[in-house]
Amino acid sequence: MWKNLPLFPERASALAWQVDGLYFLLIAVSAFFTLLIFAAIFYFAVKYRRSVHPHAVQIEGSLPLELAWTLIPLGICMILFAWGSLIYFQEARPPKDAMEVYVVAKQWMWKFEYEDGQRDLNQLHVPVGRDVKMIMSSQDAIHSFFVPAFRIKADVLPGRFTTTWFRPTKVGTYHLFCSQYCGTNHSAMIGQVIVMDPTDYQAWMSGGAGGSTGTLAANGQQLFQQLGCATCHRSDTQGRGPNLVGLSGKPVLLDDGRTVIADENYIRESILNPGAKIVSGFKPIMPTFQGQVSEENLMALVAYVKSLAQTQPKGEAGDGSSAPNTSKLQ
């Protein structure tokens, strides 16, 4: 019986215990107040039933009591708020050195692209103990990336990137649900997260299921040439467009005086809708690539532009082939 009636999902991420810890506290607080109210009602209802207590004693109210049951719950709430927010902050801030997986959600499947060019459908392979950052976008309706065993969830939106991250702590296979209703086969949009030993993961990675044609950033670099981006975005100061080397993650000054951080969404918007945020000192001459690059190609381009950040002038050569040679840009 109990085998068929589990009360908790598995705990397979660094975060799971933290969420469960807060959950236990909330259960304790709730149980306390629920029992308090139930017990009081039951006790009063029996003790002051009309047959033994025919005449009610009129009591108007009590300011100390009102204050007590306003302020005590308020205090408890503030503690819960602080704790819940701390957990949320961890969820919202992916570690810097996390391995990145790009996700395209569409009705009704999950497509994964790994940094070194592997592709996966409805199955996400990750090594245990490694931070994994998901960079996600949808091709149609809103979906939601939900792995109960990791206690994480993030909506996957069309038209922009959303991110979430996790560090799996336990080898195994876990449910991946789409938790935002997305149409006919919403309930069939279930995938698996397969957490593997690092060695198994390496073997799987090099075993090279089909489709691996070079790293994601290298694919992006190819596209960068094909689409003619390199003619304007040169790695010196002569280009008609801004130099992209070292751009990612840095603040950018716009022509209307605002400053934005060049994150994935900024790069994405600048490709699809170049006029929206124009870098100070440049003219709005870039054509839009809306409708000309698929979601996958877009992710490759973004991965490429991000990889340019790792090749700072002082030549901190990144990890081998994924580090582009800036001279190629010219």
Binding site: V19, Y23, S30, G84, S85, Y88, I152, K153, Q180
Partner: peptide, 24 residues
């Protein structure tokens, strides 16, 4: 009684850390 349970579980959902897991 039921509103008490309903209200208290609302606190779970107001809590950012828990809501991410139980939302939807």
């Amino acid at each position: 009684g039921l509103f008490t349970v309903g209200g208290l579980t609302g606190i779970f959902l107001a809590s950012l850390g828990i809501d991410v897991h139980v939302h939807d």
